[in-house]
Amino acid sequence: MCLIVLAWQAHEAYPLIVAANRDEFLNRPAAPAHWWTDAGDILAGRDLEAGGTWMGLSRHGRFAALTNYRDPSRHVAGAPSRGALVRMALEHDAGAEATLQHLASDSAAYAAFNLLVGDGRSLGVLESTTGRVRMLEPGIYGLSNHLLDTPWPKLKKTREGLHALLPRLPDDDAVLALLRDGTPAPDPHLPDTGVSLEWERWLSPAFIRAPGYGTRCSSLVMTDRHGQTRLHEWTWDGHGELRSEVTHQFKVSPPV
């Protein structure tokens, strides 16, 4: 993912609410969210080039999502795909904090990233650039291609939008409107992440349309206090138009 806003233990009925956009090169093949045949407890989209994923859920109530950290100087030649970390987090049998600490020990092998992991009782983030694992208190958070809650314009706008929408949920159309906002940030408010000014402009909206690159899918995850979980995913073509739409619903079951 490249933009994630989430409400953790901040809504009376839904302890976990996640709204997210995945941005990627348009020629990189991917499959919409589905139950994986080679890992039947995982519900996620799939990167068909490297085999991993950007965000997923498990039947046992685990959640994981990853964003890249945008800094060309931190490129790691020959590094393994960061999408594998999401699968490892979903399949790990320890709690969220122990899982993040376990993955932190090997994080230097990958290009820079941020990884969110939840186990239904706790939620935390691993920031590979600092090596820090941070467990989150109840609240509303945002994560893009820098550290958690770095106040980039699109992150602030989308996080505040989710906060304002909480009393209206469930309202998929309103959440999707937040994720589909293509308004670029004014130049004085653009971050400086090591790419050109032209690319900073293209990457500044919540919903990206750039040459050969853009928002490929938008996702909404909602889990209620009884373990009923719903994933609604919209997939976009190279022009930013709807290509496909899927909804999955299931009830969390405790691990055997």
Rank of each mutant, 00 (worst) to 15 (best):
T150G: 00
T129K: 07
T129Y: 03
L165Y: 07
L116Q: 03
A111R: 10
G142C: 14
L165S: 02
K157W: 15
T130W: 07
L123W: 05
L100H: 06
L166R: 03
K154M: 15
H146V: 02
P151M: 13
G161W: 05
L123F: 13
P170N: 13
G131W: 14
A111I: 08
P170H: 11
W152H: 06
R134L: 14
L116M: 13
L148W: 04
L155I: 11
R168Q: 15
L100D: 01
P138A: 07
F113N: 03
K156I: 15
L165K: 02
L165M: 11
G142A: 14
E137G: 00
A164I: 06
Y141Q: 02
T129C: 10
R121H: 15
L143V: 12
D149N: 15
H146L: 04
H102T: 14
G124V: 10
L103V: 06
E160T: 04
R168W: 12
H102E: 15
T150M: 04
L162M: 12
G118E: 05
V125K: 00
L165F: 01
L166E: 05
N114K: 05
S128E: 14
D149V: 06
F113D: 01
G161Q: 09
Q101M: 11
P151E: 15
K154L: 14
P153K: 12
G131R: 09
L147Y: 11
N145V: 08
A109Q: 15
D119S: 02
G118W: 07
N145M: 08
D106F: 01
D119R: 06
V117F: 02
K156M: 15
A104Y: 04
A108P: 00
K154I: 13
V117C: 09
G131E: 13
S105T: 13
L147D: 12
E160P: 00
A104F: 01
T150N: 02
P151T: 10
T130D: 03
L169C: 06
R132A: 10
P167S: 09
E137W: 02
A109W: 13
Q101H: 11
R168D: 15
I140P: 00
T130V: 09
T130C: 02
L116R: 05
T99Y: 05
L147C: 04
Y110F: 15
P167Y: 07
T158E: 12
A112D: 10
G139A: 03
L123C: 07
G118R: 03
L169I: 11
D149G: 06
E127N: 03
P170W: 08
T99S: 11
A104H: 06
